[in-house]
Every structure is written in C-alpha cells, then in structure tokens.
C-alpha cells in the first residue's frame, strides 16, 4: 500500500518539517519514502506545501494530484487541496486558524485546535507537531514511538524545545486517536 499525503500551511508554520518527520519515521520503519516541497518565489511569506509518499515498493511519482490524505494548517490550504483528497482519506484541519468544516463528507475528518494546544504545550510554534501527532494516530501510518524517536534524533539540539515538541506530538496523538 502506498500513501500520498499533502501537508500545507503558511510559510513558517513548519509544514515542510513535519513532512520530513513522517518521511524519516517511514524510512526508519524500512519503508520507501519521498518528500517533495513545492518550490518557487511565491513560496516566500505565502503558502507552502509538500508531498510525502510512503509505500512498500519503489515509489513512482513523488507528487500527487490525488493525495490520500491532507494536513491543512490554515484556511487557504484547505480551500486549495480539499477537493483533491481521495474518498476515504483523512483530512486534518487546524481549527485554531480554520473557521469552516470541510465540505466533503466522504473523508475522515480530524479537527485539532493545533495552535491552542501548542500554546498549552509551551510554544505556539509547535502547532505543526500537534497536527502531526493527530495525523499519525488517525492514519496509523507512523507510530507515536517512531515519531518521538525521529524527533529525538533530529531536533534534540534545544532540549527545551525538544520537550515541547514531544508534548505537542503526544497531545495531538491523543486527540487524533479520540477523533478517529
């Protein structure tokens, strides 16, 4: 089985990073992975997205016009990608910044107030981690242990931030499990 995920938000919300963490966790799990950022000058300060593919055999296209899942950290991202998600897929929305529900009723919706929870966890910048945790729980694509492990291996330089990230991912995970 191959899963294609689009992660999108404002530049600076850290969508590229959580995409990379999924790819890293997939790699550690001995699966095939690709991570592809949308690039261009329009990315600066504007919206930003990447596509992650996780699969069991050699991955063909690293980009997808019909992703299985979507993580949308802001409204423009939901507006842009909602229609592309395949029926039965997961859409994670950040309700701290998105004031509408997806129009689709053939998808699995996971709503998380990512910014609010991130602030509770210690930093508004960890909103991406909350969404990541929620997605992991809802999709089962990567485990919480797997994520914490890649976090520790890759983002451990600042111990305080590392702890905030761990808490944010875990809180997201709980919400994702409850919501799924």
């Amino acid at each position: 089985m191959q899963s294609e995920i689009i992660l999108a938000g404002f530049g600076g919300q850290g969508v590229l990073l959580i995409g990379k963490l999924i790819a890293l966790a997939g790699m550690d799990d001995n699966r095939e992975v690709t991570w592809m950022p949308a690039y261009g000058p329009e990315m600066r300060g504007g919206t930003c997205n990447c596509t992650v593919v996780v699969g069991d055999k050699k991955i063909g296209s690293p980009i997808s016009k019909r992703p299985h899942h979507l993580i949308a950290l802001n409204l423009p991202s939901l507006d842009k990608f909602e229609d592309e998600v395949r029926p039965g897929g997961i859409i994670v929305t950040n309700t701290s910044l998105i004031n509408r529900r997806p129009k689709r009723d053939d998808i699995k919706l996971v709503e998380v107030p990512a910014n609010a929870i991130a602030i509770e966890a210690g930093s508004p910048r960890a909103a991406n981690m909350v969404a990541l945790g929620a997605f992991a729980a809802a999709s089962g694509l990567v485990t919480l242990e797997g994520l914490i492990d890649v976090l520790d291996k890759n983002l451990a330089k600042n111990p305080k931030l590392a702890e905030i990230n761990r808490v944010a991912v875990s809180r997201g995970y709980e919400l994702g499990r409850a919501g799924a």
């Binding site: 992975v33 690709t34 991570w35 592809m36």
Partner: peptide, 10 residues
C-alpha cells in the same frame, strides 16, 4: 529536473 534536485529520498 527540478524535482530530483528538490526532493528528499533515503
């Protein structure tokens, strides 16, 4: 092409 330059893989 630009995709191969920008994408990450193991």
């Amino acid at each position: 092409d630009g995709i191969l330059g920008q994408m990450m893989e193991p």
